[in-house]
């Protein structure tokens, strides 16, 4: 009797020891894995996600790493991160400098995604926000040296909206213009064609993950001119039309020629008119 009790006690004890050993090992492993997973959430700045990824965290919870988007990409732009690369293991990304996104109208990668990790509601590729192009090195960009390039502007699939050319004065020569490419986040899809086409050894314009590239104004900020447009009138004291105290008969043009004096002519009508009048 006592020996059987002893036996069951012993086997119960062994069972509990086994369980706690397994649980302990798994818990230790879990702690390590959990810490590692936090680290792996960060996306390196050269890795751009396919279209339809709004938020890296949401994407990582939805993507099953099947690679169907990679298979359906007609330009071999997308690839799956393999072991040893520093993009979250097995997830799709592209390197814009190597092969940029060609912005297919039917978006086959999004259609291929079985999980919805690439948002199926993205139907117009112009609405994609894969990243944001940033003219990151103004020292190297030859447009800032006063040379004509504008390659990034010319290859941009949403030219004039996502990249425009702003002219400004070339201080170095004193008489020429700089043709500066300016990216507008409102329309940039992050396709990376500008980075791919940049003529420099190392691109001066780069597509970065939006989170890295985009600043955000404090939510309490209100821009007076926008608020004024919204309200249709000034929100503080009404604007008074500015009046200059000028000599009689003169005008003033703020952005033009400064003080404008009326042309002083000896006669205030034409010579023919005068003859016709017979005076």
């Amino acid at each position: 009797m006592s020996s059987t009790t002893n036996k069951t006690l012993q086997s119960r004890r062994r069972f509990l020891e086994n369980i706690s050993r397994a649980a302990g090992g798994a818990a230790l492993f879990g702690i390590g894995l959990g810490l590692y997973s936090q680290q792996s959430k960060s996306l390196p700045s050269t890795a751009i996600r396919p279209p339809g990824v709004d938020n890296e965290g949401d994407f990582l919870s939805a993507c099953v790493r099947c690679g169907l988007c990679v298979r359906d990409c007609p330009y071999d732009t997308l690839k799956l991160s393999s072991l040893g690369e520093n993009v979250t293991l097995g997830t799709p990304y592209f390197d814009a400098r190597k092969i940029p996104c060609e912005m297919c109208e039917d978006i086959p990668c999004v259609k291929a995604c079985p999980t919805g990790a690439l948002d199926p509601e993205l139907t117009n590729i112009d609405d994609a926000r894969m990243g944001l192009a940033v003219l990151i090195d103004q020292e190297a960009c030859i447009a800032f040296q006063g040379l004509r390039c504008e390659v990034c502007y010319n290859v941009c699939p949403v030219r004039d909206k996502a990249i425009s050319i702003n002219r400004s004065h070339n201080i170095r020569t004193g008489k020429h213009a700089l043709f500066i490419p300016v990216v507008h986040s409102s329309d940039c899809t992050g396709c990376g064609k500008c980075e791919h086409a940049c003529i420099l050894e190392e691109a001066a314009i780069k597509v970065l993950p939006t989170k890295l590239a985009k600043g955000e104004l404090g939510h309490h900020y209100r821009l007076s001119w926008e608020e004024k447009d919204k309200a249709g009138k000034s929100l503080v004291t009404p604007d008074l039309e500015h009046k200059y105290n000028l000599p009689e008969g003169t005008r003033y043009d703020y952005e033009g020629e400064g003080l404008i004096q009326p042309e002083v002519t000896p006669f205030n009508e034409s010579a023919i008119d005068r003859l016709n009048k017979g005076r």
């Binding site: 879990g30 894995l33 959990g34 590692y36 997973s37 936090q38 792996s40 959430k41 965290g57 949401d58 990582l60 919870s61 993507c63 099953v64 790493r65 979250t88 293991l89 097995g90």
Partner: peptide, 12 residues
Amino acid sequence: LASLSGVLVWEL
């Protein structure tokens, strides 16, 4: 870990 972190942790 998947539910705590919102990431497919084991797939890493």
